[in-house]
Design a binder for these strands. Structure first.
Length: 112
DNA sequence: TGAATGACTCGAT
DNA sequence: GATCGAGCCATTC
């Protein structure tokens, strides 16, 4: 609800995701110290549609690299198209070379 | 106030 | 090895 909300933290991490990279809900949740709150991350993404600056929710996928949230993007192809536009290969709603494009905030940012 | 929901994850069978 | 179920947390009705 507010800027200091758990969502805002999620947004901040998602916005830190580099261009052409993706991350997982669990990674974000773990980064925030709530590894078991991975579902909350998905909740945050659901609200992120009306948040500014825009949150690259399309860079957030599940642990398997599957576009589980594509249906919530409005257009089922919107999420896939955005990922492809960044150079990410998506086949059958699944990110290819996920381990290569995967971006772990805890590992990349080396914080907390 | 209590119960239900959810774009997940892990463990057990 | 694959499939199924339960848990967990924050927000919302």
């Amino acid at each position: 609800m507010n800027d200091n909300s758990f969502y805002e933290k999620v947004y901040d991490v998602v916005r830190l995701v580099p261009h052409g990279r993706v991350t997982s809900y669990g990674a974000i949740a773990k980064y925030l110290g709530a590894a078991r709150s991975s579902r909350l991350v998905g909740w945050a993404m659901n609200v992120s549609h009306g948040v500014l600056p825009s949150v690259p929710a399309h860079r957030v996928v599940n642990r398997l690299g599957m576009l589980s949230g594509k249906a919530h993007f409005g257009d089922c192809d919107a999420m896939e198209e955005k990922l492809k536009a960044e150079g990410i290969v998506v086949v059958n709603d699944q990110v290819q070379h996920f381990d290569q494009v995967f971006w772990d905030p805890e590992k990349e940012l080396q914080i907390i």
